[in-house]
Write a protein that binds this DNA or RNA. Structure first.
Lengths: 214, 214, 214, 214
DNA sequence: CATGAATGAGTTTTCATTCAT
DNA sequence: CATGAATGAAAACTCATTCAT
């Protein structure tokens, strides 16, 4: 289903996309992958089309068969990144009904998404709309889509009215989105622990209750 | 004293710097200001020397009287940004001895610094060392200087040994550093409130105590 | 008979051309039509193969089944344009024997040809041989064929020897060929009137006679 | 005064243009000259920036110090071309008050302008607004400016009301503007003769009078 | 006949940087 | 200190053309 999404994105600009996918060499996913990791590592402007071409064994010109501009490539990566976060979060939350457990699972899924080897989700966090003025509004919209998930999750918490859930949500997002700056896979910390640790104080803040243990 | 710092920075890279600083029109501060705000808004690579020249009514060539490379300009802004955060934080903490109060005051000062109209401190948060490989080590060092402040403040808290202070610190930094993304001066929220709100759960997390009220 | 010409042109450059033309969907005329109108409106270089492909619902590759190069496409349009002018002019002149009437009918036919919705003839006027060096000699030859018609028509006028018939012919061509720049079908002017108006002064110039009426 | 115009055009994009012109190497006029002749000979699209750079011993980048886009270069040439025609025509007509003599002198001046070695005016005739969609409206406006001159000249003729002066004007423009296609300096024909020959029939057409002799 | 994909050489344009004056 | 002008390397992008299927 991930593949489906990739193909559909790619098909957007190619209305005649063959139904017979086997005939296609389909460098598009590879291109998108490369773009995602370079954008996440170096940022948008420091990544050149030539570099992406080399990394995917294409010619620069070939890239423009798939995408009209470099900005459009970022948009595609961004969209895919948001989609991946949302998919993960939605999937993680699916079976669970208890609001706090839902949130906890969502936080874990979000962390997994943005710390995943595949860099799509990290791009969404790393590259701010302001970095690329030509598409900043698109990027903002895409960003908005994933933030909504957390708004919804917070709305379910049914908190005492004197607590500022908005602020809590923004703190949580900030703390989560900062993890790519310091988190190292080999650092011995597991994500589940981080997720729990992240929510404990929030719960305390919002409900006035300290969970036992940490 | 700010001026002193600016001038000294400027002098560092310019052996030709006139000894008689008073005679100069000294566009350097204006240049640095411009650079700070552009870097903070658009990032390093999306900001061009020409743009800065236009913004400061200089010619591109004139900029190179003050600074040897664009990267050096970022370094200067970065250094100034770190210095400003540290000045604020140190100043805020100065009279206070109670560790949690010190931390709370530091948080407020930090927020004030990065949300200030002058964008220096925001640059430090926005631009990651990896963005500009040529100077990444300098940037890392500068960044380190301000992170140390918080390490020190946390070290003073004398926590129960089973609490993960590192994690808490990283969460705090993340939550704080995300504020420029969402905070609007006119949003009705005052920074003091945000700072308090930010620390309450942390204290809960680290000490197992819920502050009464918020 | 037009079709015959098209098909023959098309066959010329395509040894693979199926002998059974009826089985083919034959996008060639549509392609040629599109090319004619784009070339007439935007010129040769501003018209891209991709643009033509889009306009005719073909792929760029498919165009190259019909034609070996973009230049050859222009040659084909040009040839067709010249043919169309000549057909019209010859047809118009056919029954008439009086030289001035012949010329008048030729002028009208020429105007009809170059102002026709189908842009073939307009291409011949718009695009000068020098514009496309690779085929300039072919274009010159084709152009020559239609200019000859007018040379012949002028030769029949049997003018006083002190009149400069060449100059008159060139003026006439110029005036006619400028019409696409300003003529609008809905402008209320009919071509017959324009043709008459165009010849009256010429006749005056060449014969020293003013036609009555205008 | 020509120089003044060139310099002013050039200054437009360079508000700080030094008042002391001697210090400037001022490649701008040479660039404009080159552009004019190439555009006139090969058309806009067939002329490359590199080619212009080579012809003027500049680097491609240096061209962009003077002009923001290739299109803007054409606009500048076009504007200069129109200006030159107008200057010539106005200059030629200046002392004369008799309407038909004014027109005759204007025609001669116009022919001189578009057949001049310097290709500026020829560009205006050769390159149609439709060739360069991005600036077609600017080009149309500039074209309009020089056509107005002839409208004014025709308005002064005080013709019988049953004559179509508009048509006559358009014929005249067409005949004149076609001359670059066939006129060769060494062809033995002098422009004065052409101008006279051009007007004689027009006068006949418009006034019903045949000039004696030619 | 056609297509999706690609090529490769070329195009315009950008931009940090330099330099004579 | 500053400027107008330029450089040069590299960037994004274009486009006629090709080719396996």
């Amino acid at each position: 289903m991930l593949n489906n999404r990739l193909v559909s994105l790619w098909a957007k600009g190619n209305t005649l996309a063959a139904t017979n996918a086997k005939r296609q060499s389909n460098r598009w996913p590879a291109l998108l992958d490369s773009a995602a990791s370079r954008f996440a590592e170096q940022g948008f402007h420091a990544t050149t089309i030539r570099e992406l071409a080399t990394a995917t064994a294409m010619t620069p010109g070939a890239i423009y068969f798939h995408v009209a501009t470099k900005q459009a490539l970022l948009t595609a990566v961004y969209a895919e990144g948001v989609e991946r976060i949302i998919d993960r979060v939605d999937g993680a939350v699916a079976g669970e009904t208890r609001p706090w457990r839902r949130l906890e699972k969502a936080v874990l899924a979000h962390l997994e998404a943005i710390l995943d080897k595949s860099a799509y989700a990290r791009v969404v966090i790393r590259i701010l709309p302001g970095d690329v003025p030509e598409i900043s509004s698109e990027l903002k919209m895409l960003r908005g889509r994933y933030e909504e998930r957390f708004k919804a999750l917070f709305a379910d918490l049914s908190l005492p009215p004197d607590r500022d859930a908005d602020l809590a949500r923004l703190f949580l997002l900030g703390a989560m989105n900062w993890t790519p700056v310091w988190y190292r896979e080999d650092g011995g910390r597991d994500l589940k622990g981080i997720a729990r640790e992240l929510l404990a104080p929030l719960r305390a803040m919002l409900c006035g209750i300290v969970e036992n243990g940490r």
